[in-house]
Design a protein around this nucleic acid. Structure first.
Lengths: 142, 142
DNA sequence: TTTCAAATGCAACATTGTTGCAAATATAGT
DNA sequence: ACTATATTTGCAACAATGTTGCATTTGAAA
């Protein structure tokens, strides 16, 4: 039941958000990409229409409604990816960062578990950032 | 063999870094704290001497030499913690972020493992951010 | 004590993100 | 299809965070 098959319009409708061209544009650019994209990458692919303010407000709205999530990797621009599985069930996301091409991808199937967390700390969600080399760069021997 | 017992001076000497009051100040403030601190928190505890530029350059130098590490949590200021165990052996760090008081702490003892990572992706390091409630806030029932 | 590379402070700039407000626009109701 | 209204947009101004170039100061090695 993946939202891969949804259109931006459909996603916006389901979240009761107004269907504006900026929001639709952002969603379609991200959905067409197999990796997470930064604000400037999304802007470039849309032809640099829209004010930066509108962009930031759109990202925030889409994120607040669970359609996007923000991925922050040290020394990299903030990137966004669509939330395919609205799985906010505590596990969180696993993201892979390629040190060669700097691409960021969600690894949907990855599961991880943590041990030896002090009992005094509550755990509600855990996210993993995996640093390494992506499949394309591996293939190219980088 | 924890560097808990080292002084800032000793740490700088071991890394062949000049012993300046800014670097020493930063290291001692962080070492005295049980949680990661942001630039402004460190500046406040030092009495806001030092130019911001000097601060940033000091953080970078200390980080490049492995004395500090930067912790980035979404919607939070960048925080710094000392590197107790110079353990850059692939595992990476586990950090706990408290949603109640916004404190960030390294959980040194935590181990984690990931499953089902596609074979085409290389893994060189993995870091976990655990979101929940810290021991103090738990105790206070927040 | 002298010397010199390294660190500092300052000014200027770059990037990223936010806020207030008037104008434009999407949608619900008719 | 038209209108009303709440939402969204664009713009200007601002704020926070971080960087660069350069002249001056300082730590530590000889």
């Amino acid at each position: 039941m993946k939202s891969i098959y949804s259109t931006p319009t459909e996603l916006l409708r389901r979240s009761k958000l107004k269907r504006t061209s900026c929001r639709e544009g952002i969603l379609s650019v991200i959905m067409e990409s197999d990796e997470a994209l930064s604000e400037s990458e999304i802007r470039d692919r849309l032809g640099s229409t829209y004010d930066r303010t509108t962009f930031y407000r759109s990202f925030r709205t889409l994120e607040e409604h669970g359609l996007l999530h923000r991925i922050i990797i040290p020394d990299q621009p903030v990137k966004y990816a669509v939330d395919m599985h609205h799985d906010h069930s505590g596990q969180g996301h696993a993201h892979h960062f390629c040190r060669a091409c700097h691409s960021v991808r969600c690894l949907e199937s990855v599961r991880f578990h943590t041990d030896h967390i002090p009992a005094s700390f509550t755990v509600e969600q855990a996210d993993v950032v995996i640093k390494g080399v992506c499949k394309t760069c591996n293939h190219l021997g980088r």
